[in-house]
Design a protein around this nucleic acid. Structure first.
Length: 518
DNA sequence: TATGCCGGGCT
DNA sequence: AGCCCGGCATA
């Protein structure tokens, strides 16, 4: 929830603004003020998925502004007493010649359910915003609660009917009348009549929103980092810091709120290409199609993996449960046509996920896995890295079956070693070396051969094969050290070279004697 | 140096 | 898997 306080005639931040952000985490998104223009804007952003609430402190008690409340009540000028009752802490002294003390601190909370709260130059609330003037204390409907950045406030999923627009227009008109800043006035006026918006503004915005008769406007929050996305003119430092903080906030909340909003809420948006990349959930009996990978990941994480939706942690497992699909947007309905393409958060390099592919192997997942345009992720690695569910003893030869040195390695340990190997990178020690170092001094470790020609392969492949060996976990002597020679006589000594045929097989094969063990 | 045997190649 | 051997460590 964002709270913007607009103080007409003053330049100081209204006190107690945070109290509007009830239940929020209360991140300050920035405060912009223009003392010269007499307009004060303070934008408060919190992670609470809710409606932006603008608090207008009318220092100009004589202003003729009107606010249409959600109940249809029109709050005029001095009639805005409800705010003063709820926010008595506001400094009434800042008000001018207001006769009634109750109205000296006039606060109106405007429920901007889907405004484009672009605070530009610290002067304005974006002219495109929809103002739902409302009385204080109105509970925001849950369906209207969406996370957003303060720089871009997207349109919620369910918009109110067109009858809403009138209120919005009225509220915008009030803003216009209340503001003495020419800039605010101009831009607010354009909010009231989008079709007549100043060309400069609209031109820059034309590619990021589309208009409708209901006056619904939106920005795709995911487009903030897209260079091609136009943005309203921003110049002053206050706004810069504002945007910086807002983007930072987006980064924090990315994948949790904004993406969720983006993919489940059709957002009118001008598109240049009819073909869109969509992401389809491959989970059984789930045909969910979202427009961004982060959204589908979140969907999978939340609905299929049963993970906490509040947690943005992703181990990448969701990657394997969805696929990219090309969608001809022209064939889609109007609502779908507004879905946004892949968000910039997913347009970049794929996130580096820890070794979790194994989880996929063990799940009965769709077989037609598409790696979401991540060519570097070879399926072969998946299968190779998949730990065996069986911990078995591996001996090279039958005569070694009685060797007590080979001890099963549990899967967990194998995975740990595997992960270590992966984290080392190419230049690091080979997984095999790590494995050796990991093992202790008492037991041997034998590698499992996945093919008789394993030696002919490259060293890298060999290392991989060895890494996935679920072999003996117990300590092994450091590389190069051997098991101490047994004290017992061996076949060679007993029978001599002349009777080599009497040797045990192991001795004949120059292996550890199986007959005369220590 | 002889011995034990590991690691690995070949079939 | 069975067989074999190069090579290393150790006695």
């Amino acid at each position: 929830m964002s709270t913007i306080g607009i103080r007409v005639g003053g330049a100081s931040k209204p006190a107690g603004m945070d109290q509007h952000a009830k239940g929020s985490k209360g991140r300050d998104m920035g405060v912009a003020s223009a003392a010269d223009s007499g307009v004060f804007l303070a934008c408060k952003n919190s992670s609470t998925k809710g409606t932006v609430v603008y608090k207008f402190v009318l220092e100009d008690g004589g202003s003729s502004g009107e606010f249409t409340t959600s109940q249809g009540r029109i709050l005029k000028g001095n009639d805005l007493s409800s705010g003063s009752e709820k926010y008595p802490h506001l400094n009434k002294a800042e008000y001018g010649d207001e006769a009634d003390e109750r109205t000296t601190s006039q606060t109106v909370v405007l429920n901007l359910s889907h405004p484009h709260c672009r605070v530009s130059n610290g002067h304005e609330v974006d002219k495109q915003m929809h103002l739902e003037a409302m009385a204080n204390g109105r509970q925001v409907p849950p369906e209207e609660k969406y996370p957003h950045s303060s720089s871009y406030i997207p349109v919620p999923r369910r918009r109110k009917p067109s009858g809403h627009a009138d209120k919005e227009v009225m509220a915008a008109t009030v803003l216009t009348s209340l503001s003495t800043s020419p800039l605010v006035l101009t831009q607010t006026a354009s909010a009231a009549v989008p079709e007549l918006a100043s060309k400069g503004w609209k031109d820059t915005l034309s590619t990021s929103y589309s208009s409708s008769t209901s006056g619904n406007w939106s920005w795709d929050t995911s487009d903030q980092s897209v260079p091609s996305t136009p943005s309203p003119p921003l110049s002053n430092d206050a706004n810069k810091s504002y945007l910086l903080s807002s983007q930072c906030d987006d980064a924090i909340e990315d994948g949790s709120g904004s993406t969720h909003f983006l993919f489940e809420d059709p957002i009118p948006r001008k598109r240049k290409n009819s073909m869109k990349v969509m992401f389809k959930c491959l989970w059984k009996n789930c045909e969910k199609v979202l427009s961004t990978s982060s959204g589908i990941q979140r969907h999978i994480r939340t609905f299929h993996l049963g993970r906490n939706c509040e947690s943005d942690y992703s181990d990448g497992e969701e990657d394997f449960y969805y696929s990219e699909i090309q969608v001809n947007m022209d064939s889609l309905s109007e609502g779908l046509s507004s879905l946004t393409p892949t968000s910039p958060t997913t347009a970049g390099p794929p996130p580096i996920f820890p070794v979790s592919q194994a989880a996929f192997v063990h799940r009965s997942e769709p077989s037609h896995i598409i790696f979401s345009g991540q060519p570097g992720r070879a399926p072969t690695l998946l299968s190779q890295s998949a730990p065996s569910t069986l911990c078995h003893i591996r001996t090279d030869h039958a005569y070694q079956a009685t060797d007590s040195g080979s001890i099963p390695m549990c899967m967990e340990q194998a995975d740990r070693i595997e992960g270590m190997g992966n984290s080392q990178g190419i230049s690091g020690p080979s997984p095999a070396d790590i494995m050796k170092g990991f093992l202790g001094p008492l037991t041997q470790i034998r590698t499992v051969s996945f093919g008789e020609k394993k030696q002919s392969g490259s060293s890298t492949n060999t290392a991989i094969v060895k890494t996935s060996t679920p072999a003996a976990p117990l300590p092994k002597p450091a590389p190069g050290t051997r098991k101490p020679r047994g004290e017992a006589k061996k076949c060679r000594k007993v029978y001599g070279m002349e009777k080599r045929d009497m040797w045990c097989t192991a001795c004949r094969w120059k292996k550890a004697c199986q007959r005369f063990t220590d």
